[in-house]
C-alpha cells in the first residue's frame, strides 16, 4: 500500500486526531494529537490490511520556536507483510510533557522510550521501567533539547561525578610513579 493511502485511511478513521500530513521524497509523515495516540497505534498494528508489526525507530524531536507544540515523538513503522512504511509524529506540548507508552504494542519500544525520556524529558505513561539510560542517573537536564548547550553544562552545574574524578586525580598526584 502506498504511504499516502495509509494516511488517507487514518484521516477517515480518526478525522479529529490528525493535525497534519506531509510528504517528502516519497516518505509520508502524519502528525497526530497525543490523546488517542495509543488507540491509533493499536489500530495500525492490528488491522490486517495495514499490520505495521515492526517499529523501526522511535525518537524525540525538539521544535523549539518552530511549531506550536514544542516536542514531537517520532515513530517509524514498517510492515513485514505488506512492505510499506509510515512515519507518525505525536505532538507533545512543553507544559504537559507526557505521552502514552507503546510498549504494550511493540515491546521493542522499551529502550527507545527510555532514551527519549533521557534526552528530551518526555515522560511515557505506562512504561514498565522509565529511567535514564545513556546519561548517569544523577544527571541534571536533558541534553538533546535545543536550549541545552552543546558544550555541556556550565562550571557551577558540572556533573558531581566528574568533579569526583578530578579530585581523585589530584589525590593520585602525590604518589611518585616509578617505571
Amino acid at each position: 500500500m502506498e504511504p499516502l493511502q495509509v494516511a488517507e485511511i487514518l484521516r477517515e478513521k480518526y478525522p479529529d486526531e490528525i493535525i497534519d500530513t506531509s510528504e517528502f521524497r516519497g516518505q509520508v509523515s502524519v502528525t497526530i494529537k497525543k490523546e488517542k495516540a495509543l488507540d491509533i497505534f493499536r489500530f495500525l498494528h492490528d488491522d490486517p490490511s495495514l499490520s505495521f508489526d515492526y517499529l523501526s525507530d522511535l525518537c524525540g524531536l525538539d521544535n523549539l520556536g518552530k511549531k506550536d507544540s514544542r516536542f514531537a515523538v517520532v515513530y517509524h513503522l514498517y510492515s513485514m507483510e505488506h512492505r510499506h512504511m509510515i512515519r507518525i509524529k505525536v505532538a507533545v506540548s512543553e507544559d504537559d510533557c507526557a505521552v502514552d507508552s507503546v510498549v504494550p504494542v511493540w515491546i521493542g519500544a522499551d529502550w527507545h522510550e527510555r532514551e527519549c525520556y533521557d534526552m528530551f524529558g518526555i515522560e511515557f505513561k505506562g512504561h514498565p521501567d522509565l529511567r535514564r539510560i545513556l546519561m548517569p542517573e544523577d544527571w541534571e537536564g536533558h541534553p538533546l533539547r535545543k536550549d541545552y548547550p552543546a558544550k555541556g553544562p556550565s562550571d557551577e552545574l558540572e556533573w558531581p561525578g566528574f568533579r569526583e574524578v578530578l579530585e581523585k586525580s589530584k589525590e593520585f598526584k602525590k604518589y611518585e610513579w616509578k617505571r
Binding site: 546519561m135 548517569p136 541534553p143
Partner: peptide, 14 residues
C-alpha cells in the same frame, strides 16, 4: 549501557 555515550547526535547538530 551508556558508558561510551559521546553525544554524537547532539554533536552533529553543530
Amino acid at each position: 549501557v551508556g558508558y561510551l555515550h559521546r553525544g554524537i547526535e547532539k554533536l552533529s547538530e553543530t
